[in-house]
């Protein structure tokens, strides 16, 4: 088993909480793990990425080679596209549709969704809207993780355990909100793949 995942977003969006939860889920399954993070200057509203590698064998590089990522999880529609060259032919892009506009030349959203639609395996969702709908507005990142979870070769239960371990010290209520978010994201992805197959 191996899963090479790129997480993408903008400094301050908290992509590391997704990485930490998957990491915890991987440890739960006794897998090897390497996870590189971006610290420093880019965290000030710049483009940030994290490379997360899990495997049942030992992992050499902390960085995923170009063309080898199985999955890109992006909490912002433009940021996932930035790392497209990392994706394998049959890899998945799971991206939030809600733009984070902090630059003057941010592209038109239609052009972005157009580019995303061209990718064979993709899921696009408004994670913020879903998080609001389930009354867990600050859990959009866990909605994203839920939507990406079918494409990581780990049992769903492990993600739940991951959330319990990562958010446990913040109290039961926070854990529950995040578990709900995970579930809502997962359901969206399953529905979306089913629709795709029926078409």
């Amino acid at each position: 088993m191996k899963s090479d995942i790129i997480l993408a977003g903008v400094g301050g969006q908290g992509i590391l909480s997704i990485a930490a939860t998957i990491g915890m889920a991987a440890l739960e399954n006794d897998l090897q793990l390497k996870q590189s993070e971006v610290h420093g200057m880019s965290q000030r509203g710049g483009a940030v990425q994290s490379h997360l590698r899990i495997s049942d064998k030992s992992i050499s590089s902390d960085l995923i080679p170009v063309g080898k990522a199985d999955l890109i999880i992006s909490v912002e529609p433009m940021e996932g596209l930035r790392y497209l060259s990392y994706l394998t032919d049959d890899g998945w892009l799971v991206t939030n549709s809600k733009p984070f506009k902090n630059i003057p030349d941010y592209p038109e959203i239609e052009k972005l969704t157009g580019s995303i639609d061209k990718i064979e395996n993709h899921i696009i969702l408004d994670a913020d809207k879903i998080a609001h709908k389930i009354k867990s507005p600050r859990s959009s990142n866990m909605v994203m993780l839920g939507a990406a979870s079918p494409f990581v070769d780990l049992p769903y239960k492990s993600f739940e355990v991951g959330i319990e371990k990562i958010f446990g010290r913040k109290g039961e209520q926070i854990v529950k909100l995040n578990l709900d978010a995970l579930k809502a994201g997962r359901e969206f992805a399953e529905q979306s793949v089913k629709t795709e197959l029926n078409n």
Binding site: R44, G45, V66, L81, L84, I103
Partner: peptide, 20 residues
């Protein structure tokens, strides 16, 4: 070789760090 890879669309703009 590193093989063929997917192209990053031209519309992707730079996002440099900035003041909060």
């Amino acid at each position: 070789g590193n093989g063929k890879t997917l192209q990053v669309p031209d519309i992707v703009a730079n996002r440099p760090p900035q003041f909060c």
